[in-house]
Design a binder for these strands. Structure first.
Lengths: 192, 192
DNA sequence: GCAGAATATTGCGTGCACGCAATATTGCGT
DNA sequence: ACGCAATATTGCGTGCACGCAATATTCTGC
C-alpha cells in the first residue's frame, strides 16, 4: 500500500480503514505511522530470532550461534522484498524506524542466550544481547546509507554490497565478550 | 521549570517564551518537549565523555579508560540533581528520553577509541562504542525502574542503589571485546 | 444460558512535530 | 561601508499521537 502510493501518501485513516478498525484503535497498536508501515514489511522479528537461535546445533558456541542467527535474519530476502527496502531506504523516518525494529529482538535474544548457557548472569546476557542489537543497527544503517544522496530525486538510493557480510563483520568484534562470559575468567588475563 | 510546575504542565509555548524564541524555533532544536526538559537537566554529555576519556592516563587500556569515563559520567551528581532525576524517573516518556540521551555519546566515544588505539578498525570502534552505549542504557533503565510502581501516586519512585556500580557491572562484560580488538588475535584462541 | 468482570474498541479533544516558504540575521569579500 | 550569500528564525497549515472516558466485546464461574 505504501509501496503503491508512496509512503507519504498513506494517511492513518487509510491504514485503519484497510485494517477494518477505527484510526484510534490503530494507534493503540502502532505508536507511529511509519512503525505500521515497517511492521507490515518485516513481520515478527522476535519469532524469527527465537527460531533461528534454537535451530543452531548445540555444539557451536553461543557467540557463533547468535551471530549466525542474526546474520540469517538479514539473509532471508523473502520477507524483505527489494522494492520495500528501497522505499524504506529513501525515507529518513522509515530508515530510522526500520533500524529501531532490531531492538525488538533483544528480549528474546536475552532469553535464548540464558538458555544456551545458564551459568551466565542475567545482566550479562542482557548487555550482550543489547550489544548485538547495537552492532546490527550499525550494520543495517550503514548498508541503508550506501550512496544515500539526500538532496536528490526520490528512488535514487541503491543499497548495494552484501548485508549479511556487513552484519557478520559488525558482530564479530563481540564474539570475545561472549567467549569470556561463558568461560568465567575473572577478567583481563593478558598480563597474568 | 518542569520541576516547579510538573512536567505535564509545561507547554511548548512556555519553553519557547523562556528561551526568548518562537515555538517554531524551539522545535528546530528539540524534536520533542521531553527532549528539551531532559537536555536542560543533563547538559552536553558528548563534551563530558570526550573530556573524561582523554583525561585517563595513557597507561590504562582502552577498556578501563572507557569504562571509567562512562562510570564517571554517572557519578558526578552535580549535573543530576536528586529532584530532577526523581521527576524523570516518574514519567515514562521522560525516562525513555533520558535513556536515549546516552546515544549521543557514541559518536565522540568512537573517535576517542580510535584515537587511543589507531590500529583498530572504524567499524569495530563503532560497534564497541555502541555496545557501551547499549550497556549503559540497560544499567540506567534498570536503576530508574527500581521500585517504579506505575499505578500509583506521583513522586513515589525511589531510585536506590549505586548507579555507578550498576553501570560498571553492565560495562564489564564488554571489556574482553575491547581487549581482543586491541590485540589482534584472529578470533577464538581457546581451541588453538 | 447468564450475570458480571475483564478487556478491547471507539470518539473526542488537546498539544504537538514538522514541511514549507517567507523573512530576518549573520558573516564574508571587496 | 556596502551588497551578497549563507544561515537562522518565524508563521502557517496539516496530520498526528495520545489521554480520557464511554461503549462494545470477549471471557469467566455458575
Amino acid at each position: 500500500m505504501a509501496l503503491a502510493r508512496g509512503p507519504d501518501n498513506v494517511r492513518v485513516e487509510d491504514i485503519a480503514a484497510a485494517a477494518g478498525v477505527s484510526p484510534r484503535t490503530y494507534n493503540n497498536y502502532f505508536s507511529s505511522r511509519e512503525q505500521a508501515v515497517v511492521a507490515a514489511v518485516v513481520g515478527d522479528r522476535a519469532a524469527q530470532v527465537a527460531a533461528a537461535v534454537v535451530s543452531r546445533p548445540a555444539e557451536v558456541g553461543v557467540a557463533d550461534a547468535v551471530i549466525d542467527a542474526v546474520v540469517a535474519l538479514y539473509s532471508d530476502s523473502d520477507d524483505h522484498p527489494r522494492d520495500a527496502l528501497l522505499m524504506i531506504a529513501n525515507s529518513a523516518v522509515l530508515r530510522a524506524c526500520y533500524v529501531d525494529t532490531i531492538t525488538m529482538i533483544e528480549g528474546p535474544l536475552t532469553d535464548a542466550v540464558i538458555e544456551r548457557c545458564d551459568r551466565i548472569g542475567r545482566l550479562t546476557a542482557q548487555v550482550l544481547s543489547a550489544s548485538v542489537g547495537a552492532a546490527a543497527k550499525i550494520a543495517v544503517r550503514q548498508w541503508l546509507q550506501t550512496t544515500s544522496a539526500p538532496p536528490s530525486m526520490p528512488g535514487f538510493v541503491v543499497p548495494s554490497g552484501s548485508l549479511p557480510d556487513l552484519v557478520r563483520a559488525a558482530l564479530t568484534p563481540l564474539a570475545p565478550a561472549f567467549d569470556a562470559a561463558t568461560t568465567h575468567s575473572a577478567r583481563r588475563p593478558p598480563g597474568a
